[in-house]
Simulated assay, not measured.
Amino acid sequence: MKPQVLIDAIVRQTTVLIARLSTAGGVRSPLGHVANEVFVGLVTELENEGVSKKVIADMFGMALRSYRQKVQRLGESATTRGVTLWTAVQTFLAERGTATRGELLTRFQYDEEASIRGILNDLVESGLILRSGRGDETRYRVPTAEELRDLGAFVEDRSQESYAALVWVQVYREGPLSMERLAQLVPLPQATLDATIDALVADARIRRDLRDGVEVFTAEHVLIPVGETAGWEAAIVDHHRAVLNAIAAKVTTGTRTSTPADEVGGTTLTFDLWPGHPREQEVRSLLRATRALVLPLWEEVTEYNRMHPGKETYQVNYYCGQHVLEEDEGV
């Protein structure tokens, strides 16, 4: 099978997930930035794989000059290092609340004016900011919660613990992380990110160290307990990462078949059931039974490692999931 067929199928399934997340609870989350984030993420990963800029441009069906212009517009801000220009502009407005076009152009004076104007237009069209006035006195501001509700956008009073869980997961999975890299992975306002890190360090969930003169953050473990509501977003991100990494690891090995002795891979089964089926409850309780088996093992390994730390370690990422699809539900 051609890789393009597989890529297209995965993209379609991913868009279904994004659509359902963006409309969860009957509200609407802005999606104007998603296409740009996908482009930047793909470019970064392809470059990490050693693919040249000319080849990447060709893969996107773009001329090299157009590709470079787009990367520059969406890439790291020349004024605010370590974050994309899009994120830098959005964060600046979130922290200030309001600013004129002239103030924004002055703030990001080392970035191209055309890129700033394009990003502002994108933010307005996506509903993330509002615009009023004309010329350099055009004013941009962050919508109030009431205005977002009127627009049908997603509004949530996110607790500090929700942010903490998300940062904790990222530090554990990607660490050691510098503040610069962490701000890229979790694009929160700097004051919020600082407070979240301080709270995590205070209760020893993450550790702050200096490496080659750079402050970095690490975590020795992470756990979002069953039933914990504050960290459900972090749990979704972590589970999604585990699934994708397992698939990617299987693909990159070049192995196209599974074996009984596999240590990398996955198994997907669908059980056709009906009320009163003799194995109905046994099948529906598979998730509960698997958790009951795996969680105590994880706790024992964690406790042993705490008492007897190893010098050369590696990780085994294990995941499980279950979905009950009722007869009247769509796929």
Rank of each mutant, 00 (worst) to 15 (best):
K2A: 01
K2Y: 03
Q4V: 12
L6H: 05
I10D: 04
V11S: 06
R12T: 11
Q13T: 08
T14G: 14
L17G: 04
A19W: 04
R20A: 13
S22Q: 02
T23I: 03
A24R: 11
G26I: 03
H33K: 09
N36A: 15
V38Y: 09
F39E: 02
F39C: 04
F39D: 00
L42K: 05
E45H: 08
E49M: 15
A57C: 08
M59G: 13
A63M: 04
L64V: 08
R65F: 09
R68E: 10
A78E: 12
A78R: 13
F92G: 01
R96V: 05
G97S: 07
T100P: 00
E112N: 11
G118Y: 14
L120E: 10
L120A: 08
N121G: 11
D122A: 15
L123D: 04
V124K: 01
L130Q: 11
S132R: 14
D136P: 00
R139T: 13
R139C: 08
P143G: 04
D150N: 14
V155D: 02
D157C: 01
S159I: 06
S159D: 08
E161N: 06
E161T: 07
S162C: 10
Y163P: 07
L166I: 07
L166M: 13
Y172M: 04
E174G: 02
G175F: 10
S178F: 10
R181S: 09
Q190R: 15
D194M: 05
A195W: 03
D198V: 12
L200V: 07
V201S: 03
R205S: 04
I206Y: 03
R208M: 06
D212I: 11
G213V: 09
L223C: 09
L223G: 01
I224N: 01
G227Q: 06
A230T: 04
G231L: 05
A234G: 15
A235C: 12
V237F: 05
R241N: 09
V243E: 05
A248D: 12
K250E: 05
V251S: 06
P260N: 05
D262F: 02
E263D: 10
E263G: 06
E263R: 12
G266L: 02
T270Q: 09
D272R: 06
L273K: 05
G276V: 04
H277A: 07
P278K: 15
R279N: 09
L286F: 06
A289G: 07
T290M: 00
T290N: 01
R291Q: 14
R291H: 15
A292C: 07
V294T: 12
E300A: 14
T302E: 14
T302Y: 00
N305C: 03
Q315E: 15
V324A: 08
V331F: 13
